[in-house]
Design a protein around this nucleic acid. Structure first.
Lengths: 251, 251
DNA sequence: TTCAATGTTTGAATACAATTCAAAAATTGG
DNA sequence: CCAATTTTTGAATTGTATTCAAACATTGAA
C-alpha cells in the first residue's frame, strides 16, 4: 500500500509549486516584495501550509537558491563534459557562469543574498545541508577537470589537490560577478566592460597556474573567438536542457 | 555667528554616536538583532531622531559600512606606502584585507550584506554615493601600485589601464573571502586552510600577470616568511593608526 | 459502516519591528 | 519677552512574518 509514498509525492509536488511560484513572484517584483501570505494565496493554500514546508522566509529563500543551483549545476556539468582541452573547458565554466548570471540576474542576486549571514544563519540546518549537497555535483565537475588536466600533463599539480586548485578560478569568478551585481559599483571605480575583464583575469590566473596551453589574455580577437566558440557549445547544451524541461512539462 | 556651524557639528557628532553605538550593538549581538528603537534608546534619543539621520535601517547599514570602510582604507593606503617592491606591496594588500576581515569579522559580513540588492537598493542615493566616495582612496592606492609597477618595468601593462589590471586581484580576494565568511561552505567542499589558499592564488594570479619578481606560490616557507614580514609591517601600521585614534579620543 | 484517534489545513489572531507624525519642547530673531 | 520656527519625542500606525486553536480530512479498528 503506497499511501505513504503518494502522500510524500504530493507533499513534494506542493513544495515545487511553492518554489516555482516564489521564483515567478521574485522575477516579476523582486526579492524585496516577496510576501509569505501572498505566495501562499497565489498557490491557493493558506499561509500556515507554507510553514509546513519552510520554517521561515529565509528557509524558503535558501530552498529556492538550492533549486536554481541544481539547474545551474546541470548546465555546469554538461559544460565540463564538453569535448575540448582541459584549459578550454575550465575557462568555459567561467563563461557559463557569467552567461547564466546575465540570463538570470535575479538568481545571482538571490545567491549572493543567500550566502549572507542574515539569510544563511536564519535558515534551517536541513536547508543549508541541501544547498551544500546541490553544490557537490558542480564542485565535482570542476575538480574532475582539474584532475584530468593534471593527469594529462596540462597543469602542474603544485603538490596541491584539485579542490585547492579550483578555489582560485571559482573565487575570482564569484568575486568579480558579485561586484558586477552591485549597481554603480564598478562604474564608480571607472572600470568598464567588466565581463571582458573577468574573462581576461580568468585567463591570467590560468596562465599563472601554468595551465597549458598558455594564452594571451589581451589578444582580444583570440579571446572573443574562444568565447564565441564556447557560447555556441553552451547554447547547444542549453537547448538540450530546455528540450528536456519541455518534455518533463508534458509528463 | 557660528550657530549654524555649531549645529552642524553637533549633528555630525550625533550621527557618529549613532554609528558607533550601532557598531557596538552589532558586534555584541549580530546584525540580525539590531533594532532601530533599541539603538536610539541606547544613545538616549527618541526613535524619530534616528530617522533625522537615516532614511531607513538599510540606509544606516550603508552608512555604517562606509565608516568602517574608511578605517579599512587608511590601513590600506598605508600598506600601499610601505617601502618595498611593487609586487610585495600588491600582495600585502591581500594580506591586509584578509587580516582585517579576521580581526573584524562583523565588518566583512556587513559589507557583504551591504552590497546585496536588498540593502543597497533600499539605501538612499546619498549614502550609496558616500560609500562610493569612501572607496576612491583605497582604489587609488591600488591603482597607484599597479601604475608604479608598470613604470618600474615590474609589470607589463598588457595595453590595459591600472583600473582594469587591479580588478582581478581585488575580485579574487573578495570572492574567496566571501566564501570563507559563509559558515560551513568551504568545509562542505572539502577545502581546508582557505586563508593559505587565498594567498597562494593571489600569487598565482600575480605570476599570471607577469608581475616581477615571480614567486612560487607553493613554496610554503617563502610564502610564510613573506606573510610574517608583511604582518610585522602591517602591525606597525595598525599601531600607528591606533595611536592616532587614541589621540583623537583625548581631544 | 461507524467512529475515535490521528494528522493536516486553515486563516484570523498575535507578535514584532520599522516607520510616521501630531504634540511638546527648544531655539531663534525681532 | 514672545511669536515663529525648528527639533525632538515616543506613542500610534503599519506592514508582515509567524503561530495556533478550531475545522476538516484520513485512517484503521471494531
Amino acid at each position: 500500500m503506497g499511501t505513504r509514498e503518494r502522500r510524500q509525492r504530493e507533499f513534494e509536488a506542493r513544495e515545487r509549486l511553492f518554489l516555482e511560484t516564489a521564483r515567478r513572484l521574485i522575477r516579476d517584483d523582486g526579492i524585496l516584495s516577496l510576501q509569505m501570505a501572498r505566495l501562499a494565496r497565489a498557490c491557493d493554500y493558506a499561509t500556515g501550509t507554507l510553514y509546513q514546508h519552510f520554517s521561515s522566509k529565509e528557509d524558503l529563500l535558501v530552498a529556492l537558491a538550492t533549486r536554481r543551483l541544481q539547474e545551474h549545476a546541470d548546465y555546469f556539468c554538461q559544460v565540463a563534459d564538453w569535448q575540448a582541452g582541459s584549459r578550454e573547458r575550465m575557462f568555459a565554466l567561467t563563461v557559463a557562469d557569467f552567461r547564466f548570471a546575465r540570463k538570470h540576474p535575479g538568481f545571482s542576486r538571490l545567491l549572493q543574498y543567500t550566502f549572507t549571514e542574515v539569510v544563511w544563519e536564519s535558515a534551517s540546518e536541513d536547508r543549508r545541508a541541501a544547498l551544500q549537497r546541490a553544490l557537490q555535483p558542480p564542485a565535482k565537475a570542476v575538480r574532475d577537470i582539474v584532475q584530468q588536466a593534471i593527469e594529462a600533463g596540462d597543469l602542474p599539480s603544485h603538490g596541491q589537490d584539485a579542490g585547492a586548485l579550483m578555489l582560485g578560478p571559482w573565487g575570482l569568478c564569484a568575486g568579480i560577478q558579485s561586484m558586477i551585481q552591485t549597481r554603480g559599483l564598478l562604474d564608480g571605480l571607472g572600470i568598464s566592460e567588466p565581463g571582458r575583464q573577468l574573462y581576461r583575469h580568468a585567463q591570467f590566473l590560468l596562465n599563472g597556474l601554468g595551465w597549458q596551453p598558455l594564452m594571451d589574455p589581451v589578444d582580444d580577437d583570440a579571446l572573443s573567438a574562444l568565447v564565441k566558440r564556447i557560447e555556441r557549445e553552451v547554447l547547444a547544451v542549453e537547448r538540450r536542457i530546455r528540450a528536456a524541461e519541455a518534455q518533463e512539462m508534458q509528463r
